[in-house]
């Protein structure tokens, strides 16, 4: 799905998104020429339909994680059903408060979320995950909502 500014015949660019955690999604687009802005709002059913396809709208920015669909979509996943192995070489360190926030993520997805943050930070040459780094990664990766 793409948006075209009919006046300018220019493809609109996304510049912000919001997933408040209630199943809805808001995507904001702007015309690069006349700067007109629009927002696309989806209801939980539409959001869920797209999620069930296990594809990333806008394209993937991270490598697919093992059991990604099951881990992100199974509501009754066991807190300790999965045990993620130790950090990869070159992984950034975590500050105490960043680690504390991560621990609030459900255990079923925690390891996967840690991996996403680590890979995001490492790709940008960041050697320590802080709360600020988490916020930036969260917005960039579209992890808003769901306590991630």
């Amino acid at each position: 799905m793409k948006f075209l500014c009919v006046e300018c015949d220019a493809q609109m660019e996304s510049f912000d998104k919001g997933a408040p955690g209630d199943g809805t999604l808001a995507l904001m687009f702007r015309c690069p020429e006349c700067h007109r802005q629009i927002a696309m709002l989806t209801n939980p059913q539409e959001t869920q339909m797209v999620s069930s396809l296990c594809v990333h709208i806008g394209g993937r920015t991270t490598a697919e994680q093992p059991f990604e669909a099951v881990r992100t979509q199974l509501e009754t996943g066991g807190e300790s059903a999965l045990k993620d192995v130790a950090a990869k070489e070159g992984d950034p360190a975590w500050t105490e408060d960043a680690e504390e926030r991560l621990q609030r993520t459900p255990g079923f997805v925690r390891g996967m979320v840690r991996r996403l943050y680590c890979d995001w930070a490492r790709d940008r040459g960041i050697d320590e995950v802080t709360l600020e780094v988490m916020d930036s990664a969260k917005a960039d990766l579209g992890l808003e909502g769901g306590g991630m």
């Binding site: 959001t47 999620s51 199974l74 509501e75 996943g77 079923f108």
Partner: peptide, 16 residues
């Protein structure tokens, strides 16, 4: 069965 939170847990997916 190995992924669910307990023996009595059903498979519930996110969403309504």
């Amino acid at each position: 069965d190995l992924l669910l939170e307990g023996e009595e847990a059903p498979v519930n997916w996110t969403g309504p």
